[in-house]
């Protein structure tokens, strides 16, 4: 029972980095962007951080749960991340 309890407590700690996102900040982007902030923004389905657009590389595979949220937000009229090319004015996600 004790081992199960310890396992239940420890398991989430090992999953902390399971949603790592690789990204590059464009040269003109002044906002501070932490991986955790970016992840939460994507989980909300937002396509912008401040006034900076989020662009996802064509080569990146978007996880299903993000994809579903983007679709929901898009059909509700919100701005969602777009798939496109890297530029100095965007936050560019290279992989999930």
């Amino acid at each position: 029972m004790k081992k199960i309890l310890i396992g239940l407590i420890i398991a989430p700690l090992f999953s902390l980095n399971s949603f790592a996102i690789d990204f590059e900040k464009g040269a003109n982007v002044k906002d501070d962007v932490s991986p955790r902030l970016l992840r939460n923004i994507l989980r909300k389905g937002n396509g912008m951080i401040g006034s900076t657009r989020i662009v996802i590389s064509k080569d990146a595979t978007i996880p299903g749960r993000y994809k579903k949220k983007f679709e929901e937000m898009k059909l509700s009229g919100e701005t969602v991340p777009s798939v496109g090319a890297k530029s100095d004015d965007v936050i560019f996600i290279t992989s999930f």
Binding site: E72, L75, S76
Partner: peptide, 10 residues
Amino acid sequence: NERLDAVPTY
């Protein structure tokens, strides 16, 4: 209310 036009997702 805002989601009801996102029929394919809910």
